[in-house]
Design a protein around this nucleic acid. Structure first.
Length: 496
RNA sequence: CGGGGCGUGGCGCAGCCUGGCUAGCGCGCUUGACUGGGGGUCAAGAGGUCGCAGGUUCAAAUCCUGUCGCCCCGACCA
């Protein structure tokens, strides 16, 4: 066996390491359908955790869930010019509605549709069409709706969780009476995403608007949260768009204001996807596999009975069940401790390594020796696989939440430290070129104007402006390309 | 769509150039024994239309033609 559970290591071959982590943790696998993945129970459990937490946060901020159709009439997509431009090239199109058995036993599509249907790449247009019907008066506003759905974008280069043809996400769509209110909504939801990423996923993010070229098709402004992966590349982890009145005008979403005037709504949309699972993997996992922060972990801990004889087994299992019951009664982050006892009849070593590779935060082993001493051997996923601490059984319900809290905090701090260590401030186009020619490039904080000339310089480096960070103080400076004065630095990086 | 590569048990591969016994190997799986605080050892066993279609031949995983699919590198992207 190699020294690490995952081969190759991050340093040896980062993209391959990522794939192997997904495989070793049994999160997902390729399907017979090109570019589409099967999310397996272990992977789906992570998504369910994300859904549960986010859904609560959406409701707490006044949103409600609804569901809109998978199919969108082709003509709907044509309504907003930039939107068309942005999505036309990557749509799956339904043109028929029936199959007929051919003479050779093959099925032939027949029943051509008068108007083709597009499988939603995003739902702005179909939802907008409904909003146009629903909204008549200022009293109908705001409309604050979210939907959990799947979408299809015919991407050329799929990559599990990061970019697949079909993916799961949530998309919030809101309509407001005023510009200020819609802008406030856009910022508020970005804040929800940032809080979720940092507090629950332990992924530090940078919040800020995108330059014009990186905006969502049809948006006036796109805000994003950007995270750094362990190879120094950026991952857009969530976006919140201020759509202005672009879609309202294209789709006739109007209301009568308090003064009786007819006005167009101001709309927003915001979303995060199963890509967050990819972000989670690439932020925390190590050369032994997946590492999951406790708050998002489907199981906080797993109890592993160790025994040889049948008598030992009975006693040990009994102790495990007892411990499980007392742990479930304890809580972490406002939720009951999620723990299971794994009594499967497979080799102990196999079992341990399975959980290491799955990233379960805490492993609790109980064998005859522990039982005699009234303790359990506790191993943390954020420490070495051999490191263990004997903790008295009676103290565990109180100690475990503290350990989980420490792990959660530690993972976040570690990720922040990593990002800071691979962030630089650069003052010239020359420095920039040299920096991104290096092997350990990360985030470069640079003064750049929102200008095509900047993109021309960054393009050959395969670098993009990730966002213009909106938090914290920063001094103005001259754009390193155009020389134009800008208010603050942008974050530049290679991105997924 | 342009450039490169690959299709052989569940997974990873060898064999192909130079056609020839019953198509191999590693991992995994099943069963048993020995083990037992760490993915152990040994033994037995299950599992294959060699991507598909045609052709050449006494004989094709191997040679020829066609075809389908996948992967990697580019353009696109949550």
């Amino acid at each position: 066996m190699p020294a690490t559970a995952i081969s190759p290591t991050r340093a040896e071959d980062y993209p391959e390491w990522y794939q192997q982590v997904v495989r070793a943790a049994d999160l997902a696998e390729a399907s017979p359908v090109r570019g589409c993945m099967v999310i397996k129970p272990q992977g789906y459990a992570l998504w369910e955790r994300m859904q549960a937490i986010l859904d609560r946060m959406f409701k707490e901020t006044g949103h409600v869930n609804a569901y809109f159709p998978l199919f969108i009439p082709l003509s709907y997509l044509e309504q907003e010019a930039k939107h068309v431009e942005g999505f036309a090239k990557e749509c799956a199109v339904v043109t028929h509605h029936r199959l007929e058995l051919g003479p050779d036993g093959k099925l032939i599509p027949t029943g051509k549709l008068e108007e083709p249907l597009v499988v939603r790449p995003t739902s702005e247009t179909i939802i907008g069409a409904m909003y146009a019907k629903w909204i008549q008066s200022w009293r109908d506003l705001p409309v604050l709706i979210n939907q959990w759905a799947n979408v299809v974008r015919w991407e050329m280069r799929p990559r599990v969780f990061l970019r697949t043809t079909e993916f799961l996400w949530q998309e919030g769509h809101t309509a407001h009476a005023t510009r200020a209110e819609a802008e406030e909504e856009t910022r508020k939801m970005l804040e929800v995403y940032a809080t979720f990423a940092e507090r629950d996923l332990a992924i530090p993010v940078i919040k800020g608007p995108k330059p014009a070229g990186e905006r969502f098709p049809g948006a006036v402004d796109t805000l994003s949260i950007e995270a750094m992966m362990q190879d120094g590349k950026a991952l857009q982890a969530g976006t919140s768009h201020f759509l202005g009145q672009n879609f309202a005008k294209a789709q006739n979403i109007k209301f009568a204001s308090a003064s009786g005037a007819e006005e167009f709504c101001w709309t927003t949309s915001w979303g995060v996807s199963t890509r967050l699972i990819g972000a989670l993997i690439m932020t925390h996992s190590d050369d032994d596999g997946l590492v999951v922060p406790p708050r998002i972990a489907p199981h906080h801990a797993v109890i592993l009975p160790i025994s040889r004889t049948d008598e030992e087994r009975a006693a040990v299992l009994d102790a495990c069940r007892g411990l499980e019951a007392s742990l479930v009664a304890a809580s972490f982050a406002g939720e009951a401790i999620r723990v299971k006892t794994d009594a499967r009849d497979i080799r102990g070593g196999d079992k341990v390594w399975q959980y290491v590779k799955q990233g379960v935060p805490v492993r609790i082993e109980i064998g005859p020796r522990d039982l005699a001493a009234g303790v359990a051997s506790v191993c943390r996923r954020d420490r070495g696989p051999k490191e263990r601490e004997a903790i008295p059984l009676a103290e565990l319900p109180a100690r475990l939440p503290a350990i989980l809290a420490e792990m959660q905090q530690g993972m976040f701090e570690r990720a922040v430290a990593f990002r800071e260590a691979r962030s630089v401030r650069l003052g010239s186009a020359d420095e920039l070129t040299r920096y991104f020619a290096g092997d350990d490039a990360g985030f470069a904080w640079v003064h750049v104007a929102d200008d095509p000339a900047v993109a021309a310089v960054l393009d050959p480096l395969k670098v993009t402006v990730r966002c213009i960070p909106m938090d914290g103080p920063d001094e103005p400076g001259k754009c390193v390309v155009t020389g134009r004065e800008v208010g603050r630095r942008s974050v530049l990086a290679r991105a997924y």
